[in-house]
Design a protein around this nucleic acid. Structure first.
Length: 860
RNA sequence: GCCGAAGUGGCGGAACUGGUAGACGCGAGAGACUUAAAAUCUCUUGGUGGCAACACUGUGUGGGUUCGAGUCCCACCUUCGGCACCA
């Protein structure tokens, strides 16, 4: 019964379908899975040497940002950039390049550990599950990764080299221990990374985070700060990204000016202030030091005593230091720009003016930048002005603003920071700021009052984390507490498994008996391991090196493979959170180069960013908003090719764009038409018999895709394919009439291959049989002569407005005088010229004709 | 506040080096097929006026350069990212 009903239905359907023009027989389910298994079985993209013509020599290393396998799986935003890179990989393979396209997981990290604290499930288990999910989802979208060489940072075979890298840095004194301020959550009893501090509160328990001083491990990245600036000139990166790196390094040229300190019995006391604007020093009226500054501490400790009211000042300063120390991040943020501070009772002598400048302590001065002391020029620095206003300190004008305002400065908007001419400044009077700065620097240096100095914002990298799920720091302490490197033969220095990762106020590793016993067994009684693990940025900032030789047992990668593949030719990475990762990666690269492991100093030759795919509501996709689109849903309904082509068609890869369900259906329709068109196409005998317009379009499209794909302009590439399809359909009256030769049908399918690899493979197998793969075929070539339009329609402007079109055969496009004459004779042009002779005639070959009446050189 | 990016139809977007603004897709409207719906196909689709030919107008705002400006210059407005007392 059911069966006969089904038969009737399908018969009916077939009858209906035969009546309408294009019976859509495209069904992705029939073949996507099949080709996936086929590619895997034939190991099409595995290993680092693909089969193919002998010309496959030039290497191409394509790198996708290291992915953290989160528990919630992939969403369609991840698909975009993976697909983009996969298109490049497939395109370049077809173009004879030797392609390295590896995959791996940034598998250590907090989410898995937090989940473990909540549920008790071991992070290794959740991580493995998450990776399995990611792998399955990525395979489904047809990304041609080399899966046999997959890596994960949580595998001992990976992290032994992370530890090795630490030891190399340690050996060169670039890894060191120091006391530093860290974010401490009193409720969770643990240190938090900066990213875990949201609005001054703990990300997990919402408790206020406090600053706490702890002994920590640092990497001396600042050693490379100049090279990290200079190297940016060598690379092809988006300018804003370079700018962000520069801002982060924050190089500032200035001068340290030394002021004698007065008002105390000590005679040789000075205070050293860093400034980029010594030109305004005639306008300096006070000095401020950071609470951590030595002078402030000495006063609080009673080591430096002001001549007058010494006890009061000491008491006030030490109270202020205690207050600021106790301040939470939140309190500082809430304070905003409101200024606090106390007078020390001491004065700095401004030797330019002979004036005594009161020395204050205030926490708006940062200890980590410059000298931790600044000279206050309230007339020409907004911050200094606010401080002067709060504490009623004098304001003096030494620059006339470009608008000529030379009156007393009484409001913030009068504070002139940028441009102007000096006054009330002795020998600087009348000079522009830009000239006054070097003049003053020379003057101060000549007298020994100051010394030119460069300041940087970049600090050394704090890598210690009191966390479980990370790479153990390969350090052991002797019974006296002195650190020693773990011996290389003891690597990998395994992460213990018998730990209690509930927060207890000490690092989770401290709870492992095995870890301590292991250390004592290998190093002696009383020895203890380092209990901290490394920042996961350490793991993820050298992975691109391991990728070239992921199974090498004795080195992080062999010299041969490093030489062969690096540097990375193209890096695709999101625009957010890139500053640190890129700085760290570049730092490691420069370090290992200096150790002689390779020659290059910049790891990523070319880099581009992908945008964010927003939900259908135009907002960022998130679980709580309920606007997350999963690739699995889309693939189930429309197939992986539709998902890929749609995402590439949405717009430029680097911009943010919203998801649109009905546009997805549009792409599905397009692929359906392509499928039907090709699979039903009858071929003409030879390319000589092809329909000229379709043939021309095909060659134009081959040319366009050959340029658009390497330029990542996938949206216009797909539009071109649609145009070709539309034309082909029109001309062939929907697939019934042969218009192209077999060779051209194959070319069309090849154009499709990088973008819609499943459909292309299916159609290719119909045309060529199943023995070959379209993905191993050679990218089609075009013929410029066949692509040329035989006739061009030239717009003709009269006085700047288009009034007519002139049809010109292609071979006559170079004949300027004839074209101008013909254009002038067009009826519409005659009408608009109104009988006048043009005073100016312009012909831009192949583009436009422009005729102008009236006086030459003037607008009509 | 500072640094950066971007503003084009109802929507996503296209436009080479200053040379026909709106390719391609979505949506919408009308029609064909159908008992009907869906699907599919055909046509129309920036705005205003006109039966039409056609004209005017139009790329955030206001100026400018040019035969010609979405594109270049100046000023401003808006939105989105990043940093945030960095001397």
């Amino acid at each position: 019964m059911l069966y006969s009903l089904h038969c009737l239905l399908s018969l009916y359907l077939r009858l209906c379908l035969s009546k309408i023009n294009v019976p859509s027989i495209y069904n992705h389910r029939r073949f996507e899975e099949k080709w996936l298994l086929d590619w895997e079985r034939r190991q099409l993209f595995q290993g680092r040497s693909q089969p193919g013509s002998a010309s496959r020599s030039e290497k191409l290393y394509l790198l996708f940002a290291f992915a953290y396998p989160s528990g919630s799986g992939l969403h369609v935003g991840h698909v975009e950039s993976k697909t983009a890179l996969d298109i490049l990989a497939r395109f370049y393979r077809m173009n004879g390049r030797q392609v390295l396209f590896p995959v791996g997981w940034d598998a250590f990290g907090l989410p898995a550990e937090n989940y473990a604290i909540k549920t008790g499930v071991h992070p290794a288990q959740t991580t493995r599950q998450a990776i399995d999910t990611f792998r399955r989802q990525i395979k489904r979208i047809g990304v041609s990764y080399d899966w046999t060489n997959e890596i994960a940072t949580c595998h001992p075979e990976y992290y032994r080299w992370t530890q090795w890298l630490f030891l190399q840095l340690y050996g060169q004194d670039l890894a060191y221990q120091a006391t530093g301020m860290v974010n401490w959550c009193p409720s969770c009893q643990t240190v938090l990374a900066n990213e875990q501090v949201v609005d001054g509160h703990c990300e997990r328990c919402d408790h206020q985070v406090v600053q706490r001083e702890m002994k920590q491990w640092f990497f001396r990245i600042t050693k490379y700060r100049e090279e990290l600036i200079g190297g940016l000139e060598e690379v092809d990166w988006p300018e804003p990204t370079k700018q962000q790196q520069l801002n982060w390094i924050g190089k500032k040229e200035g001068i340290n000016v030394e002021y004698p300190v007065e008002g105390t019995a000590a005679t040789d006391l000075t205070v050293n202030c860093f400034t980029t604007r010594p030109d305004t020093n005639f306008g300096a009226t006070f000095v401020v030091v950071a609470p951590e500054h030595r002078l402030a501490r000495d006063i609080a400790a009673g080591l430096v005593k002001p001549d007058t009211a010494a006890v009061t000042h000491r008491r006030q300063v030490s109270r202020y230091l205690r207050q600021t120390e106790r301040k939470t991040e939140r309190e500082r943020q809430q304070e905003g720009r409101r200024k606090t501070g106390v007078f020390t009772g001491l004065y700095a002598l401004n030797r330019l003016t002979g004036q005594r400048m009161p020395i204050w302590v205030s926490d708006f001065v940062l200890r980590g930048f410059g000298t931790g002391a600044v000279v206050g020029v309230p007339g020409h620095d907004r911050r200094d002005f606010e401080f002067a206003q709060t504490f009623k300190l004098p304001v003096k004008r030494v620059v006339v603003a470009p608008d000529g305002d030379g009156t007393d400065i009484t409001s913030l908007d009068q504070v002139q920071e940028e441009a102007g001419v000096m006054l009330n400044s002795g020998f600087l009077d009348g000079l522009e700021i830009s000239q006054a700065i070097p003049t003053m620097m020379d003057y101060l240096e000549k007298r020994g009052w100051g010394q030119r100095q460069t300041a940087y914002r970049l600090r050394d990298w704090l890598i210690s984390r009191q966390r479980y799920w990370g790479t153990p720091i390969p350090i052991v302490y002797d019974p006296e507490g002195r650190p020693h490197p773990v011996k290389e033969e003891h690597l990998p220095w395994l992460l213990p498994t018998d730990v209690d990762y509930q927060p207890q106020g000490k690092p989770p590793l401290a709870s492992s008996r095995e870890f301590i016993e292991r250390t004592e067994r290998l190093y002696g009684p009383g020895w203890r391991p380092e209990f901290d693990t490394m920042d996961t940025f350490v793991d993820s900032s050298w992975y691109y090196l391991r990728y070239v030789d992921p199974r090498h047992p004795d080195r992080f990668a062999s010299a041969e493979q490093l030489r062969r593949w690096l540097p990375v030719d193209f890096y695709m990475i999101g625009p957010e959170h890139i500053v640190l990762h890129l700085l760290y990666s570049r730092f490691f690269t420069k370090f290992l180069r200096d150790q002689g492991y390779f020659k290059f100093g910049e790891p990523f030759t070319k880099m581009r960013h992908q945008g964010i795919i927003m939900g259908p509501d135009g907002k960022r996709m998130s679980k709580s908003r309920g606007n997350v689109i999963s690739p699995d849903q889309v693939i189930d309904k429309f197939g992986a090719d539709t998902l890929r082509v749609y995402e590439m068609f949405m717009g430029p890869i680097e911009t943010d764009k919203p998801w649109d369900d009905s546009a997805v259906a549009g792409v599905y329709r397009f692929l359906g038409r392509v499928h039907d068109l090709v699979s039903q196409a009858k071929a003409v005998e030879s390319t000589a018999d092809e329909h000229p317009a379709v043939q021309r379009k095909l060659h134009q499209v081959i040319r366009k895709l050959s340029a658009d794909i390497p330029a990542l302009k996938f949206n216009t590439a797909i539009a071109a394919l649609m145009e070709l399809t539309n034309l082909w359909e029109d001309v062939s009256r929907h697939g019934r009439q042969a218009v192209l030769a077999r060779a051209s049908l194959i070319n069309f399918v090849q154009l499709l291959a990088p973008l819609a690899p499943f459909l292309a493979e299916e159609l290719y197998s119909q045309l060529e049989g199943e023995a070959d793969s379209v993905h191993l075929s050679d990218w089609p070539t075009w013929d410029d002569r066949l692509a040329a339009e035989p006739q061009v329609s030239l717009p003709v402007q009269v006085n700047g407005k288009i009034r007519a079109q002139l049809k010109v055969p292609a071979e006559q496009l170079g004949d300027t005088s004839q074209i101008l004459e013909q254009a002038q004779r067009l009826p519409a042009v005659q009408r608009w010229l109104g009988g006048e002779e043009p005073s100016n005639s312009i012909y831009v070959p192949g583009r436009i004709v422009s005729l102008v009446t009236g006086p030459v050189g003037k607008k009509a």
